[in-house]
């Protein structure tokens, strides 16, 4: 079920050279939000396509969106002012991160702009540990939020300017060998998702991955945001990130 809601911007601040943190007054959408879901926002009258943005948090009638400026649409969003309204379609995605009823924590693996949806996911779990990867120290976002939402937080940067140097793989492996986890939930660039999937296989735990693809309608009608998956019988097909996902069980992915 999706609706459009006209939302007023309550707060907007810059988190890094390219990342912005926006809070919307969204009484209806915030009630509907599930971990891993996204909304799709109209970016002015001259753009045909809405921009899909993951839900970073949903709290007391508000939606928090942390997004990266990647092109004209997200630049438009970054230049709005507090008090402006946005036409927001949501909440979107039938494939969501599971909320696990398990005493073992989940391990969240996120990278870059894949980190924000994991915050809401972390808060929904009994307990969560997180490993987040960023390009460098300046690109780190939501460090304090994850620190508060997770029992353990490890950060890796590509250049070693903060935390472990390199990808999330080494710190994630360290946590996986020390602790027992119920699942790995991951969102980030494809190489990171593949790494999360192989770590889950190696340690014998289930894994869910949040996928990304260029979208059209956002609700499953136009079929543009295809991503290749296989079913139980190994038969390959194109699923659609907006409706079937964005979160898929890792074993269904075809890379």
């Amino acid at each position: 079920m999706a609706i459009t809601e006209i939302c007023t911007i309550i707060a907007l601040k810059q988190l890094s050279p390219t990342h912005f943190d926006m809070i919307l007054d969204a009484p209806k959408l915030s009630e509907m939000a599930k971990p891993g879901q996204f909304v799709s926002i109209l970016c002015g009258h001259s753009r045909t396509l809405r921009r899909p943005i993951s839900i970073c948090d949903a709290l007391e009638g508000t939606l928090r969106l942390v997004f990266e400026v990647r092109g004209e649409g997200t630049e438009y969003l970054s230049k709005r002012k507090v008090g402006d309204t946005l036409d927001v379609l949501g909440t979107l995605g039938c494939g969501t991160f599971p909320i696990l009823d398990d005493d073992r924590p989940v391990l969240l693996i996120g990278g870059g702009i894949g980190a924000p949806p994991l915050l809401y996911t972390a808060k929904a779990q009994k307990a969560a540990h997180a490993v987040l990867g960023f390009r460098n120290e300046a690109a780190i976002v939501l460090k304090n939020d994850f620190y508060n939402a997770c029992e353990t937080l490890m950060i890796a940067t590509d250049d070693g300017s903060f935390g472990a140097k390199g990808t999330i793989e080494a710190p994630a492996r360290l946590l996986l060998s020390k602790n027992k986890y119920s699942a790995i939930l991951a969102c980030g660039p494809k190489p990171m998702l593949k790494a999360a999937q192989s770590l889950a296989e190696e340690f014998g735990i289930p894994c869910w991955l949040s996928m990304e693809e260029r979208m059209g309608c956002g609700i499953g009608a136009c079929l543009v945001c295809a991503c290749k998956t296989k079913d139980e019988n190994g038969e390959e097909k194109f699923s659609h990130v907006c409706k079937d996902g964005p979160v898929f069980p890792a074993e269904y992915m075809v890379w």
């Binding site: 045909t48 260029r214 079929l223 194109f238």
Partner: peptide, 20 residues
Amino acid sequence: RLGNPPPRIAETPMGILNSV
């Protein structure tokens, strides 16, 4: 039919391209 591999959409000035 499976359709074409993604990306299948690109925005254009006041429009889109699709290759579903």
